[in-house]
Design a binder for these strands. Structure first.
Lengths: 219, 219
DNA sequence: CCTACCGATCGGTAGG
DNA sequence: CCTACCGATCGGTAGG
């Protein structure tokens, strides 16, 4: 999910300024190149892990020299955080669109869970979607302050699931306690990152069907 | 699960030999100290990850100097493999004991699944059981040849689950396809490594109950 | 298993 | 964003 800035091609030459405009550390946004660093880092972090990825790897993936990623991000650690934050924002946005503007009462709880599960699989397994897997599997590589900031986004994401699971429990379609159900269900989905192979005939739709059949009792 | 050798205290002085007996590279077994390296490495690999753990960290955890782990293991990578192999052997042994010498027909499929789930949780979450979590979360840190060797043990472990899930499907207690069910169920369990906190009142028994209630339909 | 060490690599920076 | 570089650290080893 490239940001709008990333969709622009090389920006036209600035009208009056000579050289590059030097923005403050907090609001650097060179669009294209910054996004290239971010996307390259996400792919490498996912495939090799954060600690095993060097900033030189990342630079090369973005077609830059070894010191250049530090023009866009003040440290390797800040880059990891940016990857995860982008992943969570994208996931939240996609779930909100999927659940629709309509209120929770418009669809059956089972249909709502199906949407949540399907979009979750897409966010995890879709082509180029490395951001959320990095967030899931590199949590321990974050610094404590970063962890705390991201935990708020994670809680927001989980809060989309709780009312749906609660409704299913009331309807008798979910037998386990809601809190543990959510942890177990999301675990089952998250683990798919380890084994899913789109080339092997598996599809997100088939996966979603299987998950629903596994977790839910008849209405 | 310390090996028998690790349960011995400092060995008595050898009767006749002067200095330490120098074994060949392939069969070094100094008991105590080797196991200390292995256990320390497992804990560090689990907490910090393989790439973020230095061989100096491991040496310090075992109370050695920085170069000494290489007396017991020929490389950091070989140490990772040894941790995982020990984890898988212990897990397989525990499951076989739990399923008992009796044949598969002696208990209901649901009771057998319960055993598998409970022992799996214990292997993952029990105190000092860092070996299998390392195996689960550091798979990508292995070299291709190591991965292939371990895959055989993993397949053996999974083969304990398949007949049980098949029987449950036949009985109508499991609705999803057996292959996907196994992947989703093991994923749900494996993910508990990320959130389980024994201090917070959660227990392996409670977790097992919840998992069974979530996955199985009424008989 | 310790001492002493090596070559390579790493995250990060100054200056342009 | 590149050039050129630095100090620190890392996996691993020779020799005892």
């Amino acid at each position: 999910m490239p940001s709008p800035a990333a969709l622009m091609q090389t920006p036209v030459a600035p009208k009056r300024l000579r050289g590059r405009p030097r923005k403050t550390v907090d609001e650097r946004d060179d669009g294209n190149r910054r996004q290239a660093v971010l996307t390259g880092a996400a792919g490498l972090f996912r495939r090799k892990g954060f600690a095993a990825t060097t900033t030189r790897d990342i630079a090369a993936a973005a077609g830059m020299q070894s010191g250049s990623p530090f023009y866009h991000f003040k440290s390797k650690s800040a880059l990891l955080y940016a990857v995860m934050e982008e992943g969570m924002h994208a996931a939240l946005a996609r779930q909100r669109v999927a659940l629709g503007a309509a209120s929770v009462e418009d669809q059956s709880p089972a249909a709502q869970l199906r949407k949540l599960v399907q979009v979750h699989f897409e966010v995890l397994l879709g082509p180029g979607n490395d951001f959320v897997p990095v967030m899931l599997y590199e949590w321990r590589s974050l610094q404590p302050g970063q962890r705390k900031a991201l935990a708020a986004l994670v809680a927001e994401y989980e809060s989309l699931w709780t009312p749906v699971l609660l409704a299913l429990q009331t309807a008798g379609q979910l037998q386990a306690p809601v809190g543990l159900s959510r942890l177990l269900i999301l675990g089952a989905l998250n683990w798919s990152v380890q084994w899913f192979d789109a080339r092997k005939g598996a599809s997100v739709n088939g996966l979603t069907d299987a998950a629903m059949a596994l977790f839910l009792k008849e209405a």
